[in-house]
Computed example of a mutant assay.
Amino acid sequence: MLKVGIVGGTGYTGVELLRLLSTHAEAEVVMITSRAEEGVSVDELFPSLRGAMDLRFSTPDVKLLATCDVVFFATPHNVAMNMVPELLAAGTRVIDLSADFRITDADLWSKWYHETHVCPDVLATAVYGLPERNAEKIRSAKLIACPGCYPTAVQLGLIPLLEEKLVDPSRLIVSAASGVSGAGRQAKIDNLFTELSESFKAYGVGGHRHLPEIEQELALAAKGPVGLTFTPHLLPQVRGIHATMYAEMIDPAVPLDEIQFLFEKRYADAPFVDVMHLGSTPQTRTVRGSNMCRIALYRPQNRDTLVVLSAIDNLVKGASGQAIQNMNLMFGLPETMGLQGLALMP
């Protein structure tokens, strides 16, 4: 049984980790930290976990965390980087759900997060935790940088096209929308129900922090530079990400059914990617609460632009579920363990 520690367990990704790990057959959460909630029982803060988690929040202590087999960081950026080097030195494996280790260039990270990276030497040791691309590296990794929610939905939709050089990598456009839980569990006027209800808006149009992460990883798939225009939007709902991707075909003679076959073949062994039949439309409600990504392909008016639709739950496949998927791979467990739950309907 794996001994699991969670740093920063009071946010939405933290409680989602607890929900999913509570029924995991080979993992036990033995420690969960929060400075603000020290001494408070987990089920007092999250009554949904009554009877499932008999733990109290404690102050983060690296020496105690180092007794765990694996530690998850469900924290804002600039927290994990201050503790990870010591945990790695103690032989504890780390899965970071924040952005601290996703961008491999420390200067680029600092540009987007407006702080100095305190352990740039560790960046080179981190494995980017997208199982559908890096499963073998994840198996032997000591430190996993779990992908962001938007980057997960976008990469799964575009990687097959870039790997096979079917589209122009310099002319990629993504319009994506997220439920408000993607903003975290915090008190902000913009996140109030009365501000969000019956409204829809773009944000981060001039530049979103997920952009350099997405471009970095898509460039690896394309084996060359990519040009991406990325516009995120806020949905008046709790969970879900829907990404619509536009890519210009290099060879318009390639039929859509051949590209469909390519996607089906690419993800044939990926248990959490569902390539839907042609003409399908993925919806956020069909992935809510699950670790599944559903993808559909279109070629409007049979012209030269491919449209890829991708839907995930931002808290599961976009965060905590994918983190557990990485843990399973790291420790030689079945990839799907603890993640077999189906989407919630209605």
Rank of each mutant, 00 (worst) to 15 (best):
V275Y: 00
L21K: 03
L211N: 14
L17D: 05
V180G: 07
S175I: 13
G318S: 09
G11K: 04
V308S: 06
E213Q: 12
T13D: 05
Q216P: 04
G39F: 01
F46Y: 15
R35M: 00
N191A: 10
E136V: 12
S34Y: 07
K63M: 10
Q186P: 01
S181T: 13
A343Q: 08
P271R: 02
A145E: 09
K63F: 07
G289N: 05
G148M: 08
C293D: 13
L162N: 10
E44D: 11
P131T: 03
C149N: 15
V254P: 01
T59Q: 09
E37Y: 10
I144L: 00
G240E: 07
G318E: 03
I295E: 08
F230G: 02
Y12I: 11
I159R: 03
R56H: 09
L234C: 11
L65C: 04
I214H: 10
M249G: 05
D257W: 08
G240R: 11
A90S: 15
V226H: 08
A106L: 11
L262A: 02
A319N: 10
L344A: 10
Y128S: 08
G341M: 07
T286F: 07
R102W: 10
V273P: 01
S181Q: 10
I324K: 01
G240W: 09
L123H: 05
I259S: 05
V40D: 01
Q283T: 13
F57V: 06
E136D: 15
D190A: 14
E213I: 15
S41I: 00
A124C: 00
P252Q: 10
V180E: 11
